[in-house]
């Protein structure tokens, strides 16, 4: 469980780090902690995995990555681990998750993301993976993203 102090700290930094030479001191001033204490708490939240990492999130559209494909697979349950590991290890695959099927409308249980600058190139990459890894018997579908309606970080507090 997170302490009240950690929750306050998380709430204070979730919208972004101050752009100043001592950012952690500034956060400390807002929540009534010393710079060293803020550094120690954030370090420990990161070591404990509550914070996955500090850094930036890019807006991939603005950086030219406009072909963003969610590739979904209908994998027999007994082959999920094997194929999940296999797809997760491919170059260009940035995420690979198992998610539940929602039958009858949605039979797919393995999701991966491939981002590229052009659709044709992304489709070539997917074809190459299917061929080289012998996945032709695993039904898959490619869902490119169209318009983006909202992109911001999740807020928890």
């Amino acid at each position: 469980m997170l302490s009240k102090q950690d929750k306050e700290l998380i709430a204070e930094i979730q919208s972004g780090l101050p752009l100043a030479s001592h950012p952690y001191a500034e956060i400390g001033e807002r929540v009534g902690l010393s710079e060293q204490k803020v550094i120690q708490r954030i370090g420990s939240l990161q070591a404990g995995g509550v914070i996955k990492r500090m850094g930036i999130v890019v807006r991939h559209h603005e950086l030219g990555y406009t072909a963003n494909a969610m590739v979904v697979w209908d994998v027999p349950d007994e082959r999920l681990d094997e194929i999940g590991e296999l797809l997760g290890s491919q170059d260009y695959v940035t995420l690979c998750y198992q998610r539940p099927r929602r039958l009858p409308d949605w039979p797919y249980n393995l999701f991966c993301m491939i981002h590229g600058q052009k659709r044709e190139r992304v489709l070539q990459i997917i074809d190459a993976i299917v061929e080289s890894e012998d996945l032709a018997d695993i039904p898959h579908k490619v869902l490119f993203s169209g318009r983006r309606f909202k992109q911001r970080g999740a807020r928890y507090l």
Binding site: M1, I13, L17, I51, V57, E62, R152
Partner: peptide, 17 residues
Amino acid sequence: AKQLSRFGPMYHAERMG
């Protein structure tokens, strides 16, 4: 310029509770 959407911590939702 909205090239970056955020600069700060990425949280692990489940570990945040």
